[in-house]
């Protein structure tokens, strides 16, 4: 679906690269996460991949088209949701979708259905300019799926949304992926990445540091812990024990054999902890 080789991009057209030597491939049906702190170059990469920014250096292939010689018709297969919502403020939500829908040569979804999906049907005939930030964001999001895209670019799809709506959006992404859509997802929210992505790329200062599945990353880099709360002399004690260190393992056995465990659960390293460990930098 996507092949990127030696991609560089500089906004000032010099050696000052916002994106450096980026390389990755995304296969059909995959949800690929681009994870990195603010200013890492995530949106820049998406910009080049969607043809909004000129391809300066490197090779990029998207849905079978070489981005150096883009064809307009390739956008029938692509959907793009933007970081900053961009809808016509002077048109209503429905008018926004209806106009956009007619620009495609392929079968499109029903605008009203989409509005319903993200809970905007009651304001379908309201001017988008009067929407709240989250409402505009949802409108931008559903507009990107009007053409049932084979390849779906999502730049920060859940940022700034309240948790209920964010989880609705995540469900829609999962559902679309199940139906076959390939997703390129950009975020600095590791929970979203963890939950949705088959593979993630860690990107910092324009460079990809590693690419792997969240599961592999946790296996390789994450230390597993068990958190136990147990009664000792009628007092509740809470301990966190590593499953790697021998002394901790022995202690865990001891607690299990005394049999006074109240609560016990495993604790995995979060993607964020792994990110910090691998890159030495936080995600904020």
């Amino acid at each position: 679906m996507i092949k990127v080789n030696g991609l560089y991009h500089s906004y000032s057209n010099d050696e000052n690269y916002a994106v450096k030597n980026v390389e990755f491939e995304i296969s059909k049906g995959e949800v690929f996460g681009f994870l990195g702190p603010s200013g890492a170059g995530k949106s820049t990469t998406q910009g080049v991949l969607t043809g909004l920014l000129p391809l300066q250096k490197g090779e990029v292939e998207v849905v079978g088209y070489n981005i150096r010689h883009p064809k307009r018709e390739m956008f029938n297969k692509i959907g793009v949701s933007f970081e900053q919502s961009n809808v016509y403020g002077k048109l209503t939500a429905l008018e926004n979708l209806e106009f956009y829908r007619k620009l495609f040569d392929v079968e499109t979804m029903n605008s009203m259905d989409l509005l319903k999906w993200v809970g905007l049907d009651h304001v379908a005939n309201k001017k988008a300019g009067e929407f709240s930030k989250g409402m505009k964001h949802r409108l931008t999001f559903i507009r990107s799926m009007l053409n049932n895209p084979e390849l779906w670019f999502l730049d920060e799809p859940t940022t700034g949304l309240d948790p209920a709506i964010a989880s609705q959006i995540k469900d829609i992404v999962k559902e679309k992926n199940k139906q076959g859509a390939t997703v390129f997802l950009t975020t600095h929210n590791m929970y979203v990445a963890d939950e949705l992505c088959h593979r993630v790329a860690f990107i910092i200062d324009g460079e990809i540091k590693l690419i792997d599945s969240p599961r592999n990353l946790k296996l390789q880099h994450g230390e597993k812990f068990v958190v136990v709360e147990h009664l000792e002399n009628d007092v509740i004690k809470k301990e966190q024990l590593s499953l790697i260190i021998d002394r901790d393992k022995a202690r865990l056995n001891e607690i299990i054999s005394t049999g006074k465990i109240e609560i016990m659960h495993t604790k995995e390293a979060t993607l964020e902890e792994i990110f910090i460990k691998v890159t030495g930098r936080g995600l904020k």
Binding site: F75, V80, F82, N86, T140, R143
Partner: peptide, 14 residues
């Protein structure tokens, strides 16, 4: 400024 140009640019129109 509204950014709508970008949305237009990723639709199959010239």
């Amino acid at each position: 400024e509204e950014g709508v140009i970008k949305a237009y640019a990723v639709a199959p129109v010239a």
